[in-house]
């Protein structure tokens, strides 16, 4: 393994630790900021995989826009009650915790068993790193794929976003009328 692989696994470890912090955070802002940290580490992992465009989009959309809104609203609302209501030692929480840990251990053990089988069961796709470079770089290949082969799905997804915006406006309007 070279140094980049170590960096990749290091980032993955940081992301896992931050997700645990996010789940157990007592204040909403700690949770939101750990989520931001997860977004940043995942962007770093994309960058290490040479997917710079996805990494940058991850930063722009999640770190630059979504999380700003989260933290902005948390700051404005200044949630104090939620901090007091949460108890680490309640039976329902402990039950959920045990179930989650069990599920996680099972998943990891299955992953360990079948990790190597990926290499010979799944056929190699046409976009190898060298092919992507020959076609004019990551961004260009992605743009061509999005706006030719997957054009319909791309537009339908944007329609789904539009539906979300309109429903948010309708809900907000009903409250004020």
């Amino acid at each position: 393994m070279d140094s980049l692989t170590y960096a990749f696994f290091g980032l993955g470890l940081v992301a896992v630790i931050l997700s645990v912090i996010m789940l157990f955070a007592r204040t909403p802002i700690t949770g939101a900021l750990s989520l931001l940290g997860i977004m940043l580490t995942i962007a770093g992992m994309y960058g290490l995989m040479q997917e710079h465009f996805i990494a940058a989009i991850q930063l722009v959309v999640y770190a630059g826009a979504v999380m700003v809104l989260f933290i902005f609203s948390i700051m404005l609302l200044n949630l104090k009650k939620e901090v007091l209501d949460f108890k680490l030692m309640s039976p329902s929480f402990l039950g959920t915790l045990v179930a989650c840990v069990g599920l996680f251990v099972l998943l990891v053990s299955q992953l360990g068993l079948h990790f190597e089988s990926y290499n010979y069961l799944v056929p190699q796709g046409q976009f190898t790193p060298q092919a992507v470079v020959d076609l004019g770089g990551n961004t260009k290949v992605l743009a061509h794929a999005l706006f030719s082969q997957y054009y319909l799905s791309f537009e339908v997804i944007s329609l789904a976003l539009l539906v979300a915006i309109i429903s948010a406006v309708v809900l907000a309007k009903r409250k004020f009328d």
Partner: peptide, 13 residues
């Protein structure tokens, strides 16, 4: 490749 978006990302931070 995507230097400008990268710049925007860091400006957003």
């Amino acid at each position: 490749d995507s230097g400008l978006i990268f710049l925007l990302a860091f400006a957003g931070l």
